[in-house]
Design a protein around this nucleic acid. Structure first.
Length: 288
DNA sequence: CTTATGACCTGATAGC
DNA sequence: TGCTATCAGGTCATAA
């Protein structure tokens, strides 16, 4: 479900609720969603929340004594913050619950591709988890992308989805960023030029930033910590639009958006784009 | 080492 | 109504 913009939206809404509050009790319904210690103390019991951080698609709730609770939403995960007596839209698949004064925080995840990870300190989290990820996609540079992927023989879309190369991009924003940069998803990383890496990084930052401003994309399950929906799905140019005219060149060329499979994920791109990086979407062919 | 592939789960939807 | 098949925003472990 959630990629960087959705996770950042959850972070912002969760932060507003949690900062300065003390965790008064913890209830863990399923141990198997936790990596690391699943003791209540490891799950922040008794701690005062001083930070809600994000890197890529990863969230962390940090207590004043340094304990950190990593939260990954997987495909269908939700981190909800609600008033104590409030009714939830759904109460099934709630795997963990925290009480902080007059509010509750819940981790809900029907498919259980997400989960929690407990760390004794932020340093431990950095070392064992976040430090293994690439730079955050919201601020990534062309040089950083090229450093991570410039020698790879994979398709560029597979590279963008690799969280060790760059953190935060998933299936939606990979397609949107590549289309915006005029690069075919099957273009080989090692064949991209410095100018293309720069353009890709710039377009990815722009698309992700605009999506954050829109509160993310709600397709099915995604909700922010208040249960609210995003509206960036209305701005998708290619994701979910296979068969429609290319929004950039379709009126002129009659070309449509084609569906293909890259890295085992449904992928959409303009049929006018070429996978060989030497002849990318050239100006006047399918370009701005 | 790098890259590709199936596996892990549940739920929504489409088609018979 | 109910059955089956397909698809879904993400990682993992394992194989090649």
């Amino acid at each position: 479900m959630p990629e960087l913009p959705e996770v950042e939206t959850v972070r912002r809404s969760a932060e507003r609720f949690l900062l300065g509050r003390r965790v008064e009790s913890v209830r863990l319904r399923r141990r198997d969603i936790v990596t690391g210690s699943w003791r209540k103390s490891a799950l922040l019991d008794g701690g005062v929340v001083v930070k809600v951080a994000r890197h890529g698609k990863n969230l962390a709730v940090v207590a004043e004594d340094g304990r950190a609770l990593g939260v990954h939403l997987g495909m269908t995960g939700q981190l909800l913050c609600v008033a104590k007596g409030a009714r939830l839209a759904r109460t099934d698949h709630v795997h963990a619950e925290w009480r902080l004064g007059d509010l509750r925080m819940l981790f809900r995840d029907p498919r259980r591709f997400g989960g929690l990870e407990t760390f004794e300190s932020e340093g431990a989290m950095l070392e064992r988890s976040w430090g293994l990820l690439g730079p955050d996609a919201a601020t990534v540079t062309g040089a950083a992308l090229r450093d991570a992927l410039g020698a790879s023989k994979r398709a560029i879309k597979a590279g963008l989805l690799d969280q060790r190369a760059v953190a935060g991009i998933g299936n939606i924003y990979a397609d949107e960023s590549l289309f915006a940069a005029g690069i075919h998803p099957l273009a080989i990383c090692a064949e991209l030029s410095a100018a293309q890496w720069d353009r890709l990084a710039r377009e990815a930052r722009r698309v992700l930033g605009e999506a954050i401003d829109a509160g993310g994309s709600t397709l099915r399950d995604y909700r922010d910590a208040n249960g609210g929906e995003g509206w960036f799905q209305t701005k998708h140019l290619v994701y979910g639009r296979a068969g429609e005219p290319c929004p950039r060149c379709g009126h002129r060329t009659g070309r449509t958006l084609e569906r293909l499979t890259v890295a085992q994920r449904t992928t959409v791109s303009c049929s006018g784009l070429r996978p060989d990086a030497a002849s990318p979407c050239a100006p006047g062919v399918c370009d701005n």
